[in-house]
């Protein structure tokens, strides 16, 4: 990319102001009838952060984002965006939003729609640039109603980007997108966060949170069950896995090794979960000479997710 991005260069004062709070919900609860959708959720997103709100379907991701943006009244608690009531922040043009259930005008060509929305913001991106960034340039002249679902999702992304907002909120942005479109979307998100913009996205794709967020908020059953840097959330599941094949030894012998917290036997393979893989390996080789095929595996977000949410799918 040779694009100099001069249009979206943000003032130094804004970049230095990285400690500001972009989005904040405090003690927010919400019920739908007898179902608790959110139960006392607190979240502060600092300017410049890329936050993934991760959780199974029904965890409360959309409800939390809707309340944070003032689109839904909370049962209890408060929401603020850039220190303002959310509606005021939206009116000021500081926020771009991609909603799951937002509709588009089907009779309008893509380019016209994007240009009309861009025109609502005080300092929008040039429309040509938005169309390219969202990957909708090649069908900019076609009416929205003639597009596929994935193409319409890209149009939604274009509308979220159009105002060149300081905060981008994306609710399941890659639903319905093919691999290339996903990559292009995240590339654009990264380009923005590199400039100090704030991005909050909801997803149930663990890899997206792992690859693109610097902070993960794990929601399950309407509560935040983990919140922190991706590495810290992974570490919550506890250490590294050491796997190897052995001729035979009993579990208690492995449990006695330094650092080991847990031992699993899977057929002839032994799986040790350890907080200190170096010490465990050193002792393992010293004490057992028939150990073969040793591998160490860092836990992925998936295992963190399963262990922290109890694997629940509601």
């Amino acid at each position: 990319m040779t694009d100099s991005r001069h249009y979206s260069r943000i003032p130094l004062s804004t970049r230095l102001n990285g400690m500001g709070i972009a989005l904040e919900v405090e003690a927010v609860s919400k019920r739908y009838g007898g179902t608790v959708a959110l139960d006392g959720v607190d979240l502060k997103v600092k300017e410049g952060q890329t936050v993934a709100v991760l959780g199974p379907n029904g965890a409360g991701k959309t409800t939390m984002l809707s309340i944070a943006l003032g689109l839904l009244a909370p049962g209890a608690g408060t929401a603020r965006v850039f220190g303002l009531p959310p509606a005021d922040a939206l009116r000021s043009g500081a926020v771009g939003v991609l909603l799951q259930d937002a509709g588009l005008l089907e009779d309008v060509p893509v380019g016209e729609l994007v240009s009309a929305v861009a025109g609502m913001y005080p300092a929008p991106m040039p429309v040509e640039r938005v169309l390219r960034a969202a990957g909708v340039a090649e069908f900019a002249g076609r009416r929205v109603g003639r597009l596929s679902g994935g193409q319409q999702q890209r149009v939604r992304f274009a509308l979220a980007l159009a105002g060149d907002p300081r905060l981008l909120v994306l609710d399941e942005p890659t639903v319905g997108l093919d691999v290339d479109s996903r990559r292009a979307l995240w590339q654009e998100v990264r380009a923005r966060t590199a400039e100090g913009r704030t991005v909050v996205f909801a997803t149930h794709y663990l890899t997206e949170a792992d690859d693109y967020a610097d902070r993960v908020v794990l929601l399950a059953g309407g509560k935040i069950v983990a919140d922190g840097p991706v590495e810290a959330v992974k570490a919550l599941v506890g250490g590294t896995e050491v796997r190897f094949v052995t001729g035979g030894a009993d579990v208690s012998a492995f449990e006695a090794l330094p650092g080991v917290r847990q031992v699993h036997i899977e057929g002839r393979t032994v799986v040790l979960r350890t907080g200190d893989s170096d010490a465990t390996l050193r002792a393992l080789f010293a004490k057992f000479d028939d150990v073969r095929d040793v591998r160490t595996v860092s836990p992925d977000l998936e295992s963190a997710f399963v262990s922290l949410t109890g694997g629940q799918e509601r």
């Binding site: 689109l71 000021s92 926020v95 771009g96 939003v97 509709g103 939604r156 105002g163």
Partner: peptide, 12 residues
């Protein structure tokens, strides 16, 4: 069709 919802997140 949800266009009102889209407009609600713009400065309009």
């Amino acid at each position: 069709k949800g266009w009102a919802r889209q407009l609600a997140v713009t400065p309009l």
